[in-house]
């Protein structure tokens, strides 16, 4: 559900194990020298989100250590240093229009977290 792109064209690579994820929270992973922040919302269908770990305001790699929640029904994270909030599905910053976090396609397969292309 995180991927608006036709799955058959995507190259999937293994990023980490599902057991590396922290429910209702984030972790960071390295992917081709880029830093990805992975957020995990367990539920009937587990949801995983992959956004850039780079905080454009703090200019530091801290997004994975954001707090996770929702606002008016939109899933969001709040950055740990200066508390900007970002929409987890779109990467848009809710507090500053011009900011947006880069996103990756991501999926869970048999206990393994796989990442696809950016979107």
């Amino acid at each position: 559900m995180n991927s608006p792109i036709n799955a058959s064209t995507t190259q999937w690579t293994t990023l980490c194990q599902q057991s590396d994820l922290v429910p209702h929270s984030g972790v960071a992973a390295l992917h081709n020298s880029e830093q990805i922040a992975l957020f995990y919302l367990p539920g009937e269908t587990d949801q995983i989100f992959a956004v850039s770990n780079y905080d454009p305001v703090a200019k530091a790699n801290v997004i994975a250590r954001s707090l996770m929640g929702d606002i008016e029904g939109r899933l969001m994270i709040a950055s740990p240093l200066y508390k900007q909030r970002y929409d987890l599905q779109s990467g848009e910053c809710l507090d500053a229009e011009e900011l947006r976090l880069k996103r990756w396609e991501v999926r869970l397969r048999e206990g393994v977290v796989e990442v696809g292309g950016t979107c």
Binding site: P23, G69, I71, G73, A78
Partner: peptide
Amino acid sequence: GLGCEVCKPTVGSILASCWNELITKTEHIG
């Protein structure tokens, strides 16, 4: 809903003040 950056830490703090469980317990981490 799921909570946010206002209520989660507030509740985390209330739970800690009341029951003093480790804040690193899995259900308290987020």
